[in-house]
Design a protein around this nucleic acid. Structure first.
Lengths: 240, 240
DNA sequence: GAGTGGTCTAGACCACTTT
DNA sequence: AAGTGGTCTAGACCACTCC
């Protein structure tokens, strides 16, 4: 006979909350029911509801403060930048990035993009941007997103500096984590010209996969960065 | 009047455990008292002891398994490699790194090293190693450690492939986290020769600060890596 | 003052590992 | 069978925020 693990009670509570958030019943910024209230609604003790809510806080999906309540994560532009933009000055401080240019087009998805992006979209948006750091053009990046997941994105005119805040506001898509692979590559002609370096000069190439609250890949981004005045910061803890 | 926060009870339990671990009373691999036992010893309820132990598990200092007990983290060579060695094949799998050469010398600490390393040591060990990945020489790295923290390190003969396992066994120093800064740089003559690339070719330069259980910087390491066949992997979650 | 999360207790039962 | 961590309950008090 096959053993089947009982789902734990607080797991059920987590799923119930995820459901409410993903469905839009609890949009970003909304306040959750209190721990006791949530317990009553789902027929569990306050401590059990608490454990579920704390787990979601650890995942970054909700934020809680004593005396105020628990709220679905609302990403601000500052947070968003600080969380996911990793180029810093040598001393660790951030040079606020500026947006220099931006072009958006719709095109068929390449094979690799269909494999990676959630739901294997037929067509994608391709968003290319150049960023400045401390006055110098330092980053050229290209984002690829599914047209199916974000309908009408192209019609919205100029996009804000922080894409993830926009995705949250316009589509209730909460960006929770990224996976990046880094390489040192020689600058190509076009990129070199845009960054003001010589062709062949070393650049940091970053490929990013971006995950939402349901752990779906909603963006693939490739960046090329100068690292003469800035560096990429990474932190690593023992995996548990 | 100045308000002073009461330390929480489970914080006291955490401190007591940290004390026992740092003092060597609970060496790596040792079993902790059970939750109830720990509660009795420190005069708190089982749930309070549990919260402390779970916090330490989250920090990576101890590991717990149902039915067996809680144990001070014992790093194995495999874990150590997988936790802190971030160069992987494009598909994410690891090429087990080989150790090609190793030289260890003692020298006065440079100014920057004194500022960074714990306790501003006067003299340091400088450990230089070349590593292979899948047959090719791919990494050249230099580790700098305080001679005061690790007395007799130079007399121990050949060091194992995984330095952190050795530090744990020989000095009860548990490595928990690292901070790394990455740059793309042109290969210098000496490094280029050792890695089999042309001078000026792009390399990934990694500077690592290594922290122990008490959050002290116990190592500064600089690596230069080829990234034509491998890439550096980084993961990032929303900071809570 | 009412409502919230933060901490703590005491006890219970279960699932798992070891002997 | 004994001992462990994993889950859950029910109730309590505190600290904080907001009205």
């Amino acid at each position: 006979m096959i053993e089947r693990h009982m789902a734990t009670l607080y797991q059920d509570v987590i799923d119930a909350l995820l459901q409410r958030i993903a469905s839009g019943a609890l949009p970003p910024g909304a306040m959750l029911p209190s721990e006791v209230q949530l317990g009553k609604e789902l027929g569990v003790a306050q401590g059990t509801a608490r454990k579920a809510v704390m787990e979601l806080e650890a995942r970054g999906l909700i934020q809680r403060t004593q005396g105020r309540g628990s709220f679905v994560t609302l990403r601000t532009p500052e947070e968003s930048l600080f969380s996911f933009f990793q180029l810093r000055r040598p001393d660790g401080t951030m040079d606020p990035p500026g947006l220099l240019s931006e072009t958006l087009k719709t095109r068929p998805a390449k094979a690799g993009e269909r494999e990676t992006l959630h739901d294997a979209p037929e067509t994608v948006y391709e968003l290319t941007r150049a960023r400045t750091l401390g006055g110098d053009v330092s980053v050229v990046e290209t984002s690829v997103l599914s047209t199916a997941l974000f309908p009408g994105l192209a019609d919205r005119g100029r996009l804000p500096n922080t894409l993830y805040v926009f995705l949250q506001q316009a589509y209730s898509t909460i960006i929770l984590r990224t996976e990046e692979t880094l390489r040192a590559v020689p600058a190509g002609k076009a990129v070199a010209k845009r960054l003001g370096v010589a062709p062949g000069d070393p650049l940091l190439a970053i490929t990013r996969h971006t995950y939402d609250a349901l752990d779906r890949v909603v963006e693939v981004r490739t960046s090329h960065c100068r690292t003469d005045k800035h560096a990429y910061f990474a932190f690593r803890s023992r995996s548990t």
